[in-house]
């Protein structure tokens, strides 16, 4: 199944990826081959088969509503490229 360059650009935009023209071409071909591979699944007769939400045959795994110690603020912020010891800092964003 061919993947057009505009489809690639749209997906890249959604994933916030910047692609060069060469990369768009490369990714188009790569995506086409993986999509073709996955398309084989369409050949299996699935009438009457319940859609599966998870490959494991388990369900309803829950935990009690009790507190578990988390990270200190110092630890929480430590992986961040930029912070002011209180909050994570990110480039200015427009109000939502």
């Amino acid at each position: 199944m061919p993947i057009t360059s505009s489809q690639v650009r749209k997906v890249a935009q959604l994933a916030r990826l910047e692609l060069t023209e060469d990369e768009v071409q490369l990714v188009s071909d790569q995506l086409a081959s993986i999509v073709t591979f996955v398309d084989q699944l369409g050949e299996v007769a699935t009438d009457g088969v319940e859609p599966m939400a998870h490959p494991l045959d388990i369900h309803t795994v829950v935990r009690p509503d009790t507190e578990v110690p988390g990270l200190s603020r110092e630890q929480a912020l430590s992986n961040s490229p930029n912070h002011n010891d209180e909050c994570f800092l990110v480039p200015p964003v427009m109000a939502r």
């Binding site: 935990r63 507190e67 578990v68 988390g70 603020r73 209180e86 994570f88």
Partner: peptide
């Protein structure tokens, strides 16, 4: 008392970034 998918407290008004863990981060 705790968040939907981790055991961090949900109390309002805590000092910023003091109620987190690897799951909710």
């Amino acid at each position: 008392r705790t968040k939907l998918f981790c055991g961090c407290p949900t109390a309002f008004g805590a000092s910023p970034n003091t109620q987190t863990c690897p799951v909710c981060l």
